[in-house]
Design a protein around this nucleic acid. Structure first.
Lengths: 153, 153
DNA sequence: ACTTAATAGTAAAGCATCAAACTAATTTTT
DNA sequence: AAAAATTAGTTTGATGCTTTACTATTAAGT
């Protein structure tokens, strides 16, 4: 069956399957790296750390939005990162509902070790993928999220 | 910052974020539908059912491959679907390591109710997305999985 | 000002995932 | 034919996600 003759429905089924596969492969790639180097960190915790390496001192809700996670999951993950002494919470003086998350020195130091692996992973992923193709994908995915968001109202 | 000036690394970060968002939105869309109609089925169980609606009587490993799930997760999900009397296991006479999964009548009947929702969801998702764009995305995602798979060797 | 609504975070329970260790059956090597 | 390797499935324990309900704080509506 050629590509042109496939229905959009069939293509979408395959599309979602491929999304899941890439997601899983990315996760497993980094976790293998972590195991190999005895890093006690899950993929999900890394997502939070990577977010904080870009911007320190934001509140949990903001971290949730950026990492696309539930705020309840965030409580759990921040608890774990706190136990590992990689981050700490500080109540926001301006709005006492917020808890601002800051990196400890240990948490900051970790970036030097881990960021190269992320860069390396992205290089692997992007082999034979052009910036144009990435742009198309980002736009399509953005449209889809927006379509689903609108439909949920 | 324009699209052309963004680094591939930055684009990949956004790309993975968008993947996660679409994945989550698809899941929540269907779960909302299920709640609304009092369907006692999780998204993950549906993935297994949808696989079987296409092809009945395959073994657990094949279902795992198609749904991109761990075989341990599959044991768990098939147990749950069995408890709901939607599927049953049958030992493969040809190779007694295999357990073939079959739909019950109740499991088959369910397709009439649920498949329209999936079709509807895909229509929503694909609004303003062309088959060409879908094709590009599938190809890019396939490349990425393959790149990561090769790197894992 | 006072009531109501919205927002940030936590807690608990149920579900799904994953890794590792295990059993059983089959295939490959020797 | 016997030993070793592979494959399918299960079990267990740890981790993460999600829903619901809850508390505390702030903002909005009257």
């Amino acid at each position: 069956m050629t590509k042109a003759s496939r229905s959009k429905q069939e293509m979408t089924t395959e599309f979602t399957r491929e999304i899941t596969k890439v997601n899983l492969a990315l996760k497993q790639y980094l976790q293998a790296k972590f195991r190999l180097h005895d890093i006690d960190l899950t993929f999900e915790m890394l997502q939070v750390m990577a977010c904080l390496w870009k911007q320190d001192g934001i509140n949990q809700q903001e971290v949730s939005n950026i990492t696309v996670k539930d705020k309840a999951s965030m409580t759990y993950l921040i608890d774990n990162l706190t136990a590992r002494k990689l981050v700490y919470r500080l109540e926001d003086e301006k709005d006492r509902r917020n808890k601002l998350i800051f990196l400890t020195e240990k948490g900051k130091d970790m970036e030097q070790q881990i960021q190269p692996w992320i860069t390396e992973m992205y290089a692997v992923v992007n082999k034979n993928v052009t910036a144009d193709q990435l742009g198309v994908c980002i736009r399509v995915l953005g449209n889809m999220s927006e379509n689903l968001r609108k439909a949920a109202d």
